[in-house]
Every structure is written in C-alpha cells, then in structure tokens.
C-alpha cells in the first residue's frame, strides 16, 4: 500500500507551501483520481510520490517502508509532456530498453509500430512518444503508477488506447494507479474514487 501521511512541500524555507498536509492511501489494484485547480501542486505531489523529490514534512511509505533510494522504483511517474521525458539524442528502441524489453503484445496494444523503434524522438508526435513513455513505465518492477495528465495533450482515440492498456495491466498485475487530471469525464470513467485538492 502506498501511503501519504501529512505530506507538505516547499522549495526553500522562505518560499510558500506548494501543497500542505496531504493524506491518502493507494491500495494495489485501486485506481484513484486526483483533481484540483491549476497551480495547486498536483505535479509536484506526483514527483514526491514517485520519489523524485523528498517531502518537506510528512511521511511517504510503501508497505510501511520508505521508497527505495536506489534501484528500480516500484512507484513510476508518467509525465504530461513525453518530449521532455525522453532524451533527444537517443533512438526510440534505446528509450524502451533503458527500462526493459516490453513484450510484443504490450507494444501492439499501445499501437507502437515496429518502424518507430528505429526513429529519433523528434520524428514522432507527442501522442506516439507518450505510448513509449507508458510502455517504459510498465516494467515488471512497477507496482504503482502516477499518471500526471498523461493524455491531456492527446486526441480521444489515443487517450482511450493508452487508458485501456493501463487499466488492463492494472487489473492483471494488481497495480495501484493515481490519475492526476482536470478532466471530469475521464476521472469518472476510469477511477473508483477521486481526491479533490484545494488551492
């Protein structure tokens, strides 16, 4: 179980709180939405939950233990803008292999074509890159996914494709998923419950 207890974060002791006193639990196999107005710290919270940054106050635990500092992190974050989360000087096959060699049926389900593997990131569109970012986050070590507005910039078909894959994987592997989004219809469709963040 991924457990956040009173998480608060600010960049420096003098700056204002980005978010304060956030408490919730994410159980395996559970799909939970997180929404709130722009600038309420959702993206920063996502980074804290996946171990990119440490909370200023509060405790984050995975099965009552802190997140591992080294090695593959069982909580994986997928970013809103895949073009920033992929090295521009790598080929797409390298991007996948940094994480693992995804089985062919996963690539098929995500609509990743064989020819794309040899391409450079700037030759693919945002929607195509995001499918790679999702595949990369689904390595065997993953137990929780933090999806930060991952389909906000995508068309409806690509959005549905990506979410079908994530929902199917979550069911099969008992993954916990936190869906950060503004989009009420999407949250309603995929999530069991939704957490509202205040400003």
């Amino acid at each position: 179980m991924l457990k956040a207890e009173g998480l608060s974060f600010r960049y420096t002791p003098n700056s204002g709180w980005v978010f304060q006193n956030i408490t919730f639990e994410l159980r395996p196999g559970e799909i939970v939405g997180l929404s709130g107005p722009s600038g309420c710290g959702k993206t920063t919270l996502g980074k804290v939950l996946a171990g990119y940054i440490s909370p200023t106050k509060g405790r984050l635990s995975l099965d009552d233990r802190p997140l591992p500092r080294r090695g593959y992190c069982p909580v994986q974050l997928i970013f809103q803008h895949p073009e920033l989360a992929i090295n521009t000087r790598w080929r797409m096959s390298q991007v996948l292999e940094e994480s693992f060699s995804p089985p062919l049926d996963l690539l098929r389900a995500l609509g990743i074509e064989n020819g794309w593997l040899k391409r450079w990131p700037h030759e693919l569109s945002g929607g195509e890159l995001q499918r790679f970012a999702v595949a990369r986050a689904l390595a065997p070590g993953t137990r929780y996914l933090i999806a930060d507005e991952i389909t906000t910039m995508l068309d409806a078909i690509t959005q549905a494709q990506i979410w079908q894959v994530i929902l199917e994987q979550a069911r099969r592997r008992n993954l916990g998923v936190l869906v950060i989004s503004h989009e009420a219809p999407l949250l309603e469709r995929v999530c069991g419950r939704v957490i509202e963040l205040k400003q």
Binding site: F79, H81, L84, E98, A139
Partner: peptide
C-alpha cells in the same frame, strides 16, 4: 531534465547516466 531524473528512478547508476545521457 525529466529524462535524467527518470533514469535514476529506473534504477540506473550515476555513472551509467553520465555515460549514456
């Protein structure tokens, strides 16, 4: 960069990141 921080969360060592990223 997001992809460098992500590489660390994928369990890559600092030396590996320096060499490849």
């Amino acid at each position: 960069a997001n992809y460098v921080q992500l590489s660390e969360r994928l369990g890559r060592s600092r030396i590996w990141i320096a060499r490849h990223h």
